[in-house]
Design a protein around this nucleic acid. Structure first.
Lengths: 338, 338
DNA sequence: CTGAAAGCGCTTACAG
DNA sequence: CTGAAAGCGCTTACAG
């Protein structure tokens, strides 16, 4: 076993101060862009810093300044373009504000408590995304310690909660199907209170009751491919009692659609199918899958933005925010029309 | 504008020490799991820490301990499941080792230099993924400051470089096509020296020359959808001079395939098509797209692992590492066989 | 506009 | 096995 890497010694603020002929306080101010530094002094400091290739140690700044200049993002332990997109929005916004991003995957099988506590010790604020091992309770206990926002998950009392529009969009989508004569829809997915899927389910209910129709069918299953296959199998065994399937996400919708097609069911003639998230695949399958585009990147950016506001004390408090979604009509719903 | 959030005061190591009736040195050791602490003492410290809900300030630990206990990951500024998967592998491995992950998207349009320098000041080591705004030069200049590894990008002299197997897999894929009678293949993508696509292109050349055949065609374009469409259009206008298209990634392959199919070309009868990355969509289109699964998650994990070794001084130096890829045969290549 | 000095909250030789 | 004390490298009232 080799010995630990010998750390290269780098210039500190003292070296810069000495070279520029000023105090470390002045170096600190000049480099922070303080306006109360004489231009000439500032230039000398900047020149000295550059000559020494000075890079302030983040830990020292954080300790002295009581700001880590970092934001935390807790994601469910899954892959997928959806979360990647959220991360992109969050990171870009954070980096525009000079903040770095510490990312954590909350794995149900592991020590979520320890993970989140650890994160809380190294960032100025945390965004919790959707369903993850970070429970309501854990988030609530974390919140007094530092600013917290939630994204696409049940709201924590007194904390900012961000969502994409779900209920109203689901209602519109359902009304569109009803308008095309599909009056016996079923919802596929597990609607949980306050979650994205829960809200989507409510939107479907809204449309049905507004139209004076009975409640839609419900096939409760987790939003993953194999459960979609199982749901499709179940439908076939039941003799296809519905004429439209509003799926909680694309993964489910694609699995259901393919399985039904493989069994000879015609989409959309025999049954209409819709999804959510507008994944890449939705546009590539045939018929194209009607889906809902969510402003995921904007949601990520908004989270970073509100967190920054909370950290600086410039944010209005406790305002839930909902960003608009948009239906993308393709062939699978039999209502693409125009 | 509201005033800045009043920080809640939390227990420090002094409070824990006082409560446990020991010195802060002992608290520090006990909590770090040092073996040189008497069991009774350790229990008392742990109890006191729990009672006070003590959370060590990461900045203070980092400053005093000269270790941030964080790893940096620089990704190209794009979304997509591929990078998400890499991040998952990296994060899981890092978190297993008690390290957190600071993620940065290197955007060509922005200050990559400042971004990477900032990152270098807050982590113990950095992994640079693929093509990003982090140039060879920038990475080389960062490397003396802290441990660095690269992933799927041209190697930086003297630094660890990780890859998934590209050249040999490309050769196998090509040989399979040749075996199925497709002797006039073209490569679609922009092969750059030392990059994943560059290696894939070389593998195709290997197979052709080993078979005593002329070099394959080359349609140089960036690996994005619209360039795939343009390439397909070009092929049509040329009268389809090839019988197989080996595309640098799935995005390109899918765009090419769809465009050709829309123009009446039969896949694989008229032309065979293959991609790389085995995206979700590859399995959903018809015919299914033959593609190559890369060990992306494992690559991420390996990067975190080697970085940790480098930080601790326990890593063998300068060993390039290549992880195996696997071809997934589907209908599009006309060589699925069985 | 600038500096001296205290202090941020830990870790780690060093000594016992 | 434990403690006193120095020190990690910054920032920020405070005073001028």
């Amino acid at each position: 076993m080799a010995s630990a890497r010998e750390p290269v010694v780098h210039a500190t603020i003292y070296a810069v101060a000495e070279r520029a002929g000023v105090s470390t306080a002045t170096v600190s101010r000049a480099l922070a862009g303080s306006t109360k530094v004489a231009p000439g002094t500032r230039d000398a400091v900047i020149a000295a810093a550059r000559e020494l290739d000075y890079l302030p140690t983040a830990a020292a700044s954080a300790l002295a300044g009581r700001r880590t200049r970092a934001l935390g993002l807790v994601l469910p332990h899954v892959d997928g373009a959806y979360y990647a997109e959220l991360l992109v929005g969050f990171e870009i916004e954070a980096s525009h504000r000079g903040l770095s991003v510490v990312i954590t995957l909350a794995n149900p099988r592991e020590d979520a408590e320890g993970t989140v506590r650890g994160l809380a010790s190294k960032v100025d604020g945390i965004a919790f995304m959707a369903r993850s091992a970070a429970t309501d309770d854990l988030i609530a206990r974390t919140a007094p310690r530092l600013p917290v926002v939630t994204i696409a998950r049940p709201r924590i009392p007194g904390r900012d909660a961000l969502f994409s529009e779900n209920r109203r969009t689901a209602r519109e989508l359902t009304e569109r199907l009803l308008g095309a004569g599909r009056v016996r829809p079923a919802f596929i997915g597990r609607p949980e209170r306050g979650s994205d899927l829960g809200m989507r389910h409510l939107g479907v209910l809204d449309a049905m009751s507004a139209a004076g129709l009975p409640a839609p069918g419900l096939l409760a299953c987790d939003p993953v491919e194999d459960q979609g296959v199982a749901a499709a199998e179940h439908l076939l065994s039941e003799g296809m009692p519905y004429d439209a399937l509003i799926c909680g996400n694309d993964e489910l919708a694609l699995a259901v659609m393919r399985h039904l097609q493989d069994r000879g069911v015609q989409v959309p003639d025999d049954i209409a199918i819709t999804g959510w998230d507008d994944t890449t695949t939705a546009a590539y399958v045939r018929p194209g899958l009607t889906s809902v585009v969510q402003p995921v990147r904007a949601l990520g950016a908004l989270a970073a933005q509100r967190l920054t506001g909370l950290v600086d004390g410039t944010a209005p408090d406790d305002v839930p925010t909902v960003l608009a979604s948009r239906i993308v009509h393709r062939g699978s719903c039999g209502c693409a029309g125009d």
